[in-house]
Amino acid sequence: MTLKENISNDKIINQVAAIELQNVVHTYGKQQANSKSLHFSQWKVEIGQQVFLYGDSGSGKSTLLNLLSGILAPQQGSIKLFGTEMSDLSNSGRDRFRAENIGVVFQQFNLIPYLSVAKNIELAVYFAKSSKQQLVESLQQLMAALKLPSSILHTPVSSLSVGQQQRVAIMRAFINAPKLLLIDEPTSALDNSAKHGFMTLLLEMCQAHNTTMIFVSHDTGLEPFFSLRTPITSFCNGISDEVVG
């Protein structure tokens, strides 16, 4: 490969966005005349940007995160993450892509209650093929920032408080240093001190790894942490009162 070709390829790579939505439609329930739908017109997020996404309850924020993570598939339109068209992937392909590229913290933590904290975290490492050394180093950093005692590592998740479970879900999302973080109301069960520590660590990790982040929260006190603030209504319409987000 010549130097000119290499420079050209670098430019192409740099032009790829982290997120590109084009005329995405998601319909709730069966597609009938009275079905309720969301329409996301166009939205683009560049690699390395951290976005505070806000909107009223029921505006489709959680639905959008589910679409971006591949948990939901749109009926129409295009969703590209880092240049990959998600609709081109099989179900297993989307699962693999999510494990290797996306960290997710949803309001429902999706932790396995009968497994220990350590085992829940190890599952995320296993699916993404990260090393044991990476796991140990990341756990130490995350537990200190979120003020979690090391004694809970071998405690079943079901024995933890809601706030502790939420912090474990946050750790699991971070553990593989993902390219994209999708975060939905992650600090609601944290006190102010732990919340500040979490936000500081979150932004430090994003900046260190050039991680793209979509952060959804009703806590307007967190807005100053972000230079980019986007209302979901700027690119989403066709929302009904029955939509939960």
Score class of each variant (00 low, 15 high):
residue 170 I to K: 10
residue 111 L to Q: 08
residue 208 A to T: 13
residue 185 E to R: 14
residue 219 D to L: 13
residue 187 T to V: 15
residue 63 T to R: 00
residue 76 Q to T: 02
residue 74 P to Q: 00
residue 136 V to E: 06
residue 87 S to F: 00
residue 245 G to Y: 11
residue 171 M to W: 04
residue 219 D to I: 15
residue 218 H to Y: 12
residue 20 E to F: 04
residue 230 T to E: 07
residue 129 K to E: 12
residue 131 S to Y: 04
residue 49 Q to N: 09
residue 118 A to T: 02
residue 110 N to H: 14
residue 218 H to D: 14
residue 207 Q to D: 12
residue 20 E to N: 06
residue 199 M to D: 14
residue 173 A to I: 10
residue 144 A to K: 07
residue 43 W to F: 12
residue 63 T to A: 03
residue 235 F to P: 00
residue 168 V to Y: 04
residue 125 V to A: 06
residue 211 T to N: 04
residue 154 H to I: 06
residue 19 I to G: 07
residue 237 N to V: 00
residue 24 V to T: 01
residue 188 S to Q: 15
residue 186 P to Y: 09
residue 48 G to K: 08
residue 172 R to Y: 06
residue 184 D to F: 11
residue 39 H to D: 00
residue 75 Q to T: 05
residue 129 K to W: 03
residue 158 S to P: 01
residue 192 N to I: 15
residue 52 F to Y: 14
residue 115 L to Q: 12
residue 243 V to F: 00
residue 125 V to K: 02
residue 220 T to Y: 11
residue 201 L to Q: 13
residue 24 V to A: 00
residue 201 L to K: 08
residue 118 A to D: 05
residue 40 F to E: 01
residue 27 T to M: 06
residue 12 I to V: 15
residue 3 L to Q: 15
residue 9 N to F: 10
residue 8 S to H: 14
residue 170 I to F: 08
residue 124 A to D: 04
residue 90 S to K: 08
residue 87 S to K: 04
residue 96 R to N: 07
residue 85 E to D: 10
residue 27 T to Y: 04
residue 41 S to K: 10
residue 224 P to K: 14
residue 54 Y to W: 08
residue 59 S to C: 10
residue 236 C to F: 00
residue 138 S to D: 05
residue 75 Q to L: 01
residue 82 F to E: 10
residue 60 G to P: 05
residue 56 D to A: 10
residue 139 L to T: 09
residue 243 V to G: 02
residue 147 K to M: 05
residue 128 A to W: 06
residue 173 A to G: 09
residue 119 K to Y: 03
residue 198 F to K: 14
residue 152 I to L: 12
residue 103 G to N: 10
residue 201 L to I: 08
residue 157 V to S: 05
residue 185 E to L: 13
residue 123 L to T: 05
residue 67 L to V: 03
residue 191 D to P: 13
residue 53 L to V: 11
residue 162 V to M: 13
residue 172 R to M: 07
residue 234 S to V: 00
residue 5 E to A: 15
residue 240 S to C: 04
residue 45 V to Y: 04
residue 245 G to K: 07
residue 220 T to S: 14
residue 226 F to N: 12
residue 145 A to C: 04
residue 243 V to T: 13
residue 219 D to Q: 15
residue 186 P to V: 11
residue 89 L to A: 06
residue 154 H to R: 08
residue 68 L to H: 12
residue 68 L to E: 08
residue 215 F to T: 14
residue 228 L to W: 01
residue 110 N to E: 10
residue 174 F to Q: 11
residue 145 A to F: 02
residue 66 N to F: 04
residue 139 L to Q: 09
residue 134 Q to W: 02
residue 84 T to L: 02
residue 42 Q to S: 08
residue 33 A to I: 13
